[in-house]
Design a protein around this nucleic acid. Structure first.
Lengths: 226, 226
DNA sequence: TTTAAAAAGATAGTATTACTATCTCATGGA
DNA sequence: TCCATGAGATAGTAATACTATCTTTTTAAA
């Protein structure tokens, strides 16, 4: 029997559930690849339809527009990441060790740890770094938020916030520190590869340095303000 | 005599220098207002032309496309911010006081401190928060970077990095900490107003709390790793 | 004061994007 | 058998992101 990870997605994100059909899975699979190749701005449903040898109208039956598709993909990513975090800290007691694990999971390129046949998690990780923030940097954030499209991100943030409080119950900014870790794990990675003079990781392109930077940042703050 | 701040802009950003003509200044002035109103995605040269009672072709004579205009606006913002930072830390000796001043300048809404007739700095600040990262989150970052479009951001980052090293010469990540301060000053602000559960500033909408959070984060790290 | 260049206005046109609509066909379960 | 579902095929539209050209106005140098 094949164990297949199934993530429960917010139904308002799609018109027809992409996980239920072959075409739907191909839409997810190839939209990830095409967004990675072209960037989100240049990505169109037409190009996607050509790639999967279907039609534009076919894609529109699944997703209202490409922004909803981006919301779907990012929501999936954050759900999947929370799942991974849970798996990896399950048997850890020490909150500091948990936090280190979390930072590592956020800041380093993913290895395929579970079978999710049609999602390339490594490429997904890269497009979340480059395009993820575009999911919420819009004029309709508030409406999208009311529809709970950012719930998976919020859940992960809350979860990390809880670990922060385990480590230091007196710390006053657990959620802001949590969102800082999440965002910075991605932004420093983007800067390292694309605008290296905004980082101290220069030409090394070594993700473990980002981990060390973040660990130092987080634990200084948590220990100092005990 | 009127003292007017003049910022030297990278000439590759425009086709015709907007600062040299009335129409040019109106393009800058109203594109800031329109991007703020519509968001960058829904902002078009046609809408802009209507607003300033000119024509689309007229705008295209100044800027190749709307992304170049965004690059221009963001570059202007970072140059202006570096100028402000310089002004405010000029007579400060203590690097820690300098850093606090910098954090305050980054994280709080600007008051019009110098006459820049046609730029509304307060609205500009808001659009940099919401749209600024879209200037570099593209498939052509590398090309844009070769054209030095991000130089003002880099200069500011380097300047803050230097102050960090003044405060603690042994600190290993001055530039990453610097870009973290810059990005987080903006992102935490965006989250506070739009996705408050990602922060600890709740419904207070109080920018001084962001300042405190960032100060604690930065100084814990700098003191701890002395 | 003339003159010519630069700036701006007016208008038109094109390829692409982001959709909506409709009709047909294949499949498969009740 | 039939009928719902998914998907292919095709067409059409409004808006976007430009490019081109021609005319008129403004400005600045000779």
């Amino acid at each position: 029997m094949e164990l297949q990870l199934q993530i429960k997605m917010n139904e308002k994100l799609f018109l027809r559930d992409p996980e239920q059909t072959e075409l739907g899975k191909k839409i997810i699979q190839f939209s990830i690849l095409l967004i990675h190749e072209n960037g989100f701005e240049a990505f169109t449903f037409k190009k996607l339809a050509e790639e999967i040898e279907s039609t534009e109208a076919g894609v529109y039956r699944y997703f209202e527009n490409k922004h909803k598709l981006l919301l779907y993909i990012t929501a999936w990513y954050w759900s999947w990441l929370e799942y991974r975090v849970n798996m990896h800290i399950l048997n850890l007691k020490d909150p500091d060790r948990k936090l280190k694990k979390v930072i590592r999971l956020l800041a380093t390129t993913v290895e395929d740890d579970i079978s999710t046949s049609y999602v390339n998690e490594s490429i997904l990780h890269q497009i979340i770094i480059a395009e993820g923030s575009k999911a919420y940097l819009t004029k309709h954030v508030t409406a999208d938020n009311k529809d709970h499209f950012f719930q998976p991100y919020k859940n992960l943030c809350a979860k990390i916030g809880d670990i922060i409080l385990e480590s230091n119950p007196k710390y006053k900014y657990p959620k802001s520190l949590s969102s800082t870790i999440i965002e910075m794990a991605h932004i420093q990675n983007y800067f390292m590869y694309n605008l290296p003079s905004l980082t101290d990781f220069g030409k090394v392109n070594d993700e473990s340095k980002i981990v060390t930077f973040l660990e130092e940042l987080v634990f200084s703050s948590l220990k100092k303000n005990k």
